[in-house]
């Protein structure tokens, strides 16, 4: 299983960068714009990555059966696609 550590690690880096940007933006008529833009960019990009990473951290298999059927990969590997794909038909992942 993946680790939750990168979330905190990059979180800390992003926070540090935001502080750095806040302190180091050169003075000038566009200081506020540059500072806000950079800080918000860091925050939003981190958020989106974090959400995506966390969502895939512990795939909900077992009860929720998020099962992958990847015919193309199978075909590429020269394996004839098994015929027992009926078992996934009625499956609907329970969404929380």
């Amino acid at each position: 299983m993946g680790s939750i550590f990168p979330v905190f690690f990059f979180g800390a880096i992003v926070v540090a960068l935001m502080f750095g940007v806040a302190l180091l933006t050169p003075k000038g008529p566009n200081q506020a714009v540059i500072r806000t833009a950079l800080m918000l960019t860091l925050a939003t990009c981190y958020l989106l990555w974090m959400i995506t990473y966390l969502a895939q951290l512990h795939p909900l298999i077992g009860e929720c059966c998020l099962v992958l059927v990847f015919w193309k990969t199978m075909a590429e590997r020269g394996v004839s696609s098994p015929s027992q794909n009926g078992q996934e038909q009625g499956m609907s992942g329970r969404m929380s």
Binding site: M1, G2, S3, P6, W49, T52, Y53, Q56, L57, P59, I61, L66, V67, L68, V69, F70, W71, K72, M74, R77, V79, S81, P82, Q84, N85, E88, M91, G93
Partner: peptide, 26 residues
């Protein structure tokens, strides 16, 4: 090769959505 179902292999795709989902039934 023996199974039509992908098995988690303990890794987490580090950036973005796992390409394995692409074309998956679910």
């Amino acid at each position: 090769p023996t199974s039509s179902v992908g098995e988690p292999n303990g890794r987490t795709y580090p950036f973005g959505i796992d390409p394995a989902w692409h074309g998956a039934d679910n």
